[in-house]
């Protein structure tokens, strides 16, 4: 089988799909816009639910794609995708072209730009950070405020850019709740004197082991979960963050002084994915992610025969689901060539 397949995006989904396609005997080109493969995985430190280091997953994926049948083309962005009688022609931003017999789109997600919720003060107040900034701190094993002090009170805001009609995102990003719980525990582990408050709308603990970790966070780590969203953040003269929220269980408005606020940024369709969708005529759903051909048995199949989806370019997923989803692409690709010949 000398079929050539281009995989767009070398994050978790793209790497897994490329490796498994190569195992199945295809020639694979793995195109990545950044200089390094790994995507968002490079930004995380320890993963839920078991807190294994993200580098271990990265090592597994690196090993998977490090073989003869896979050509990794990094630092390249695909901007155009044209179907000419079943042969795909792909054009890069730099102007070079390549052809493929089938394409796997694994363009993943972008984190919601938290500055769009100006009321939380991201980019305005120094000590308002995102979940991804906090991972950076964990990596350095050090959580400090901008002035070098250790935070005494940390707030975590769930659903930033998710389930929010005002920013046009009605969907749930699914991972922020468990990320918040994981990060809250990690803060307490690192800074045992620090108090952590999570402001949530609903705790969506749907994955394996999530509920157990949530219980552990309350019972063992004494993390405060307050049902109600933060409405606005301001800064006192002493550079403390003053947040206003509503405790909807107590039915009372609430005002609190915090040292640090962590925003659980949601997932949005990636910019690269949006460009590709437009140029290739790939259908997107109301949530702007790629729309799969069928919700139950076609989640890897697109509206163009020969173009397949893998991972979070179709919906928010955790790493476990992403890897399963990427592997499933291979069987769809195999069926596609079998039916064509």
């Amino acid at each position: 089988m000398n079929k050539h397949i281009v995989v767009i995006g070398a994050g978790v989904a793209g790497m897994e799909a490329a490796g498994q396609l190569s195992n199945a005997g295809f020639n694979v080109s793995l195109v990545e816009k950044d200089e390094n493969t790994g995507g968002h995985l490079n930004g995380w430190y320890k993963l839920f639910p078991d807190r294994r280091r993200s580098s271990e997953v990265k090592d597994y994926l690196d090993k998977l794609i490090n073989k003869d049948g896979i050509k990794v083309i990094s630092g390249t962005t695909i901007e155009k995708l044209v179907n000419i009688n079943g042969i795909f022609s792909l054009e890069t931003r730099e102007g070079t072209e390549m052809t493929a017999d089938a394409v796997v789109v694994a363009t993943g997600f972008d984190l919601f730009k938290s500055s769009r919720k100006e009321e939380y003060g991201y980019g305005i107040y120094d000590n308002v950070i995102t979940s991804s900034d906090l991972e950076e701190m964990f990596r350095k094993d050090k959580i400090v405020l901008v002035d070098g002090r250790v935070p005494e009170n940390v707030g975590i805001v769930h659903c930033v850019g998710s389930r929010d009609e005002k920013v046009g995102n009605l969907y749930c990003s699914k991972l922020c709740c468990i990320t918040a719980v994981k990060q809250a525990i990690e803060i307490r582990e690192l800074l045992p004197e620090t108090r952590v408050f999570c402001f949530y709308m609903d705790m969506r603990m749907g994955g394996a082991h999530y509920e157990e970790i949530y219980r552990e966070a309350q019972e063992e780590w004494g993390i405060n979960f307050i049902r109600g969203k933060v409405s606005e953040v301001s800064e006192s003269i002493r550079k403390k963050l003053i947040i206003k929220a509503e405790d909807t269980l107590a039915g009372r408005p609430l005002k609190m002084e915090l040292d640090m606020l962590v925003l659980m940024a949601g997932m949005e369709m990636s910019e690269g994915g949006r460009i590709l969708a437009k140029s290739a005529g790939l259908e997107t759903g109301e949530n702007r992610f790629f729309a799969s051909a069928d919700n139950h048995f076609g989640s890897n199949i697109s509206n163009i025969p020969g173009v397949f989806y893998a991972g979070t370019c179709t919906a928010p997923m955790n790493i476990t689901e992403t890897i399963s989803h990427a592997r499933a692409t291979v069987s769809d690709v195999l069926n596609y060539f079998k039916n064509r010949s």
């Binding site: 100006e118 009321e119 003060g121 305005i124 107040y125 409405s231 606005e232 953040v233 301001s234 800064e235």
Partner: peptide, 9 residues
């Protein structure tokens, strides 16, 4: 303006 703190600042 409290929801757009950049203006107040």
């Amino acid at each position: 303006t409290h929801l757009t703190p950049a203006i107040g600042n």
